[in-house]
Computed example of a mutant assay.
Amino acid sequence: MTEAVHLATARVGDLAAVMRVMDAAFDPLFGEAWSGAQLLTLFALPSARVCLAWHGEEPCGFSAARIAGPESELLLLAVDPAWRGRGIGRLLLDDWQAWASAHGADDYFLEMRADNDAAHLYSRAGFVEVGRRAAYYRGNDGQMRDAITMRQRPSPKSGD
């Protein structure tokens, strides 16, 4: 199904499309969704990128990431629940790393709620847990949840 999906760098004019996916994908219970104002700050940063996945004219997923030297951090990755299980998350993940690599990054990080269902996607892509913050996230239900930091280490270079 992913062959019918195309990816494109989002622009400020795409904010409504990104927010449509954000609203569908992030459960309000956890309070993880960003506001439109928060996302707008990324569009102004030359070291950040928001990528939208489209099926025709319908937005079905997005990623947001930034680069700092040789490291890149995935800030958000979301797939509309109606489009999950079709490889869109992996397309967005691969696209993020290709973009970051083209800009000099070779070390990839992300942080997420420890009980996030996306953990299997990241594990299959070679990410491993490298840190944990106990009771870091407070959900809208008042419950505290751990945050985990995951990293995909760069491949060793010849002669290292």
Results as ranks from 00 to 15, higher is better:
Leu39Val: 07
Ala82Ile: 00
Glu71Val: 10
Trp96Tyr: 11
Ala53Thr: 11
Asp106Val: 06
Leu42Cys: 12
Ala65Leu: 11
Glu57Trp: 00
Ala78Trp: 06
Trp99Ile: 06
Asp117Tyr: 06
Gly87Cys: 11
Ser72Thr: 15
Leu40Gly: 12
Asp106Asn: 12
Ala102Met: 02
Arg124Asn: 10
Ala44Pro: 01
Gly85Gln: 09
Asp94Trp: 00
Val50Trp: 02
Arg124Ile: 00
Arg49Ile: 00
Tyr122Pro: 05
Gln97Ala: 06
Tyr108Glu: 06
Asp115Cys: 05
Trp34Arg: 12
Ala105Arg: 00
Arg90Thr: 11
Trp99His: 03
Glu73Asn: 13
Gly104Arg: 02
Asn116Thr: 08
Ala102Arg: 04
His120Ser: 15
His55Leu: 13
Thr41Ser: 14
His120Phe: 00
Asp107Gly: 01
Gln38Gly: 09
Asp95Ala: 12
Arg90Ala: 10
Trp54Gly: 06
Trp54Glu: 03
Asp106Ser: 10
Leu93Lys: 04
Gly104Tyr: 03
Arg124Glu: 11
Tyr108Cys: 06
Asn116His: 03
Leu52Pro: 04
Ala53Tyr: 04
Ser63Arg: 01
Arg84Trp: 03
Pro70Trp: 02
Trp99Ser: 04
Leu91Arg: 09
Gly61Leu: 13
Val79Ala: 09
Ser101Trp: 08
Leu121His: 04
Asp106Tyr: 09
Gly85Cys: 08
Leu74Val: 14
Ser123Asn: 05
Leu110Lys: 07
Trp83Leu: 05
Gly89Val: 04
Trp83Gly: 06
Gly104Ala: 05
Gly104Met: 10
Val128Glu: 15
Gly36Met: 03
Ser63Asp: 07
Pro81Leu: 08
Leu76Val: 08
Ala64Thr: 05
Ala105Pro: 04
Trp54Leu: 12
Ala125Lys: 02
Ala125Phe: 06
Ala78Leu: 03
Glu58Arg: 13
Ala65Met: 15
Gly89Ile: 00
Ala100Ser: 09
Ala105Lys: 01
